[in-house]
Structures are given as structure tokens and as C-alpha cells.
């Protein structure tokens, strides 16, 4: 039996905005809840990954190791957003490290549960994947912006005169 609060939360998640109520009800029991304390690392870059995560409450920081104990902050995410979906599809190790910025509650969707959802509700799955692709595109654009921003930081911080080299 799906928890009404989980279904209500899923309704507010943009990833599921095109899914009808019955599909949300069928998806909800497949999600596993996970809680993180402030500062707790959920996974690190290079870890094996089998699941994606929805942020139910709190916020997380996605970072990538640069040197020693220093990591670059790639993104911050809050309630209603999702992450970790890349490993779900390409089965490659995690591409970044994720840690809780504050006390955070997550809902996990693993590969098997997603597969079952696709088999049982193919039309809902198509809507789900459509939204997922649009989110990927947004994140790809954001990555381009971040690269430009970091390059600008490097130029400003080093005073490198590129124009007149």
C-alpha cells in the first residue's frame, strides 16, 4: 500500500509531473526512504551506483574532487529535485560525490524497481523519460555555464592576459 504522503510528495516532483495519479500510487511503494545526517556522504565519486535519489526534504551538495581534501561544488539541490540517475542508466561508477548540506530525507529508486515500473506502465514510463531528457538538457546547459564561469574565475584570479598573448 502506497503511503499517501509519499504520493503527495511525488505529485510535487517535476520529474513526475506528467504521470497520472494511479501511476504515482504504483510507483510509491517501489521507493525506499533513506535519511542523511548533516555532512554525511551518500556516495563518493567512483563508487558503484544502482539507484537514483529524490530529495524529499533538506538539501545536498554535489562535488567533484580537485586536490587533497578540496572539491569543487558542482551543484546544490533541494526538495523535489533528483540526482544519481546517470549510474542508473550507464551502470558506470558514480561521477561525483554527494553529501548532505543539512539533515536530509531521500527516496531511492533502484534499477530493478524502475524496470518493473517501465514494464507495468509503459505509457507512464515514456512520460517519465521525456521529462528526464528535458532535465538532462537543462543540466548540460548548466554544466556549460559552470565551465565558462570557472574559466572566467581562472582568468581573473591569475590575471592571464589572453587577449594580447
Amino acid at each position: 500500500m502506497a503511503s499517501p504522503t509519499v504520493v503527495s510528495f511525488l505529485r510535487s516532483v517535476s520529474l513526475f509531473k506528467d504521470l497520472a495519479e494511479p501511476h504515482l500510487v504504483s510507483l510509491a511503494p517501489r521507493l525506499r526512504e533513506r535519511k542523511l545526517k548533516k555532512g554525511e556522504v551518500l556516495f563518493r565519486e567512483g563508487d558503484p551506483g544502482q539507484e537514483m535519489f529524490l530529495i524529499r526534504s533538506g538539501s545536498i551538495i554535489i562535488s567533484k574532487p580537485i586536490t587533497g581534501r578540496v572539491e569543487q561544488v558542482l551543484a546544490r539541490m533541494g526538495a523535489g529535485e533528483f540526482f544519481g540517475e546517470m549510474s542508473l542508466f550507464d551502470q558506470a561508477p558514480r561521477s561525483a560525490t554527494v553529501q548532505a548540506d543539512v539533515e536530509t530525507a531521500l527516496l531511492c529508486l533502484d534499477r530493478d524497481s524502475l524496470q518493473q515500473f517501465v514494464e507495468v506502465s509503459p505509457r507512464a514510463a515514456a512520460a517519465f523519460f521525456g521529462t528526464l531528457v528535458r532535465t538532462f538538457i537543462q543540466r548540460l546547459r548548466a554544466s556549460g555555464d559552470l565551465v565558462a564561469e570557472v574559466t572566467r574565475w581562472g582568468l581573473e584570479a591569475t590575471g592571464l592576459d589572453v587577449e594580447n598573448r
Partner: peptide, 13 residues
């Protein structure tokens, strides 16, 4: 421009 860096502490999360 500002760069946001996460600095990890030793031995814990």
C-alpha cells in the same frame, strides 16, 4: 567571480 569549494575535514564526514 566566485568559486565555491568544498573542503573536507579529516576522518569524518
Amino acid at each position: 567571480t566566485k568559486l565555491e569549494l568544498l573542503v573536507r575535514q579529516d576522518g569524518d564526514d
